[in-house]
């Protein structure tokens, strides 16, 4: 049966469009796209407790159309090269071929669902610029803090001075960091949960210890700069602190690329 399923996909590639395929192939592939589409939608609704799911139903023909056209640059053979990518995952004579092919198709359907959601529905927790951020720096922050605005061209000289100061402070701060702190900062920089089992294996620590390590590292940087520039205005000190933390994070990521124990963490990230 797996061989027959593979042949459906190869027929689709040979014929260029599903409409030109046999009725059996049309049915099988539409059902595949429809089933995967509904799977991801259902899981997303469950995770986000979104109400009124009826708006997110599509027919099998539409599910297939969304899948088939998602990566189609043009209606030429070259423009549909994603089919090469998809079918090249499977050697039809080998065991597991249909799984390899369908896993690739599922990756595409997941992106199709994401695109569909983006266009058709409002997310359950819509972002707004007044939404509070996780407070890493002991000061209230909102999304608006992510967009401080373009630097006035007349301040570019000052900005360079800030960059130099921040670079110096970041170098000292990085040198003072313990390995556990570096890994905690790296994980946060890559969006890896500190509770991930790989993180625990590498550090020998639980999430709570690593969270404390992260907070200690960042707080130490902020406290040092606050103390050193105690007579300066708070906005300037905040700017310098943020720049220093950013450079420290970049140094940590660069360090992790060379640190053998972190190789597994890159795979966790994606």
């Amino acid at each position: 049966m797996a061989k027959a399923q593979i042949q459906n996909w190869f027929e689709w590639k040979r014929q260029c469009a599903l409409a030109l395929c046999s009725p059996c192939t049309r049915h099988v592939l539409r059902q595949f796209a429809h089933a995967r589409f509904r799977y991801y939608v259902a899981k997303y609704l469950h995770r986000t407790n979104l109400r009124n799911p009826a708006v997110i139903s599509v027919e099998d023909r539409q599910a297939w159309h969304l899948f088939e056209s998602h990566l189609e640059l043009k209606t030429t053979r070259r423009g549909k090269a994603y089919k090469n990518w998809l079918l090249s995952r499977a050697n039809e004579d080998e065991e597991g071929a249909i799984q390899a092919l369908e896993s690739g198709a599922s990756l595409i359907v997941r992106d199709v669902v994401r695109e569909f959601m983006r266009k058709e529905i409002s997310p359950p927790r819509t972002m707004s610029l007044s939404r509070p951020l996780n407070d890493d720096f002991a000061r209230p922050m909102t999304m608006a803090d992510l967009l401080p605005g373009e630097i006035d061209p007349t301040s570019k000289v000052e900005m360079r001075e800030y960059s130099e100061l921040a670079g110096g402070h970041a170098g000292d701060a990085f040198d003072d960091m313990k390995r556990r702190e570096k890994i905690a900062v790296f994980c946060r920089s890559m969006g890896i949960s500190l509770a991930h089992h790989v993180v625990a294996e590498i550090t020998g620590c639980r999430k709570s210890s690593l969270s404390n390590s992260y907070r200690d590292a960042i707080t130490r940087i902020a406290s040092h700069i606050q103390h050193k520039y105690v007579k300066e205005d708070s906005e300037s000190v905040k700017t310098l602190t943020l720049m220093t933390v950013q450079i420290v994070k970049e140094k940590v990521v660069a360090w992790a690329k060379l640190e053998k124990s972190c190789a597994r963490l890159f795979k966790v990230a994606e």
Partner: peptide, 23 residues
């Protein structure tokens, strides 16, 4: 940021779909 949140939610759904080792 909304698209990123959507991406993270969907990506977390099926770790097995991310990639399959194979031919």
């Amino acid at each position: 940021l909304n698209e990123w949140a959507l991406y993270l939610e969907l990506y977390a759904i099926d770790a097995a779909t991310r990639e399959k080792e194979g031919w």
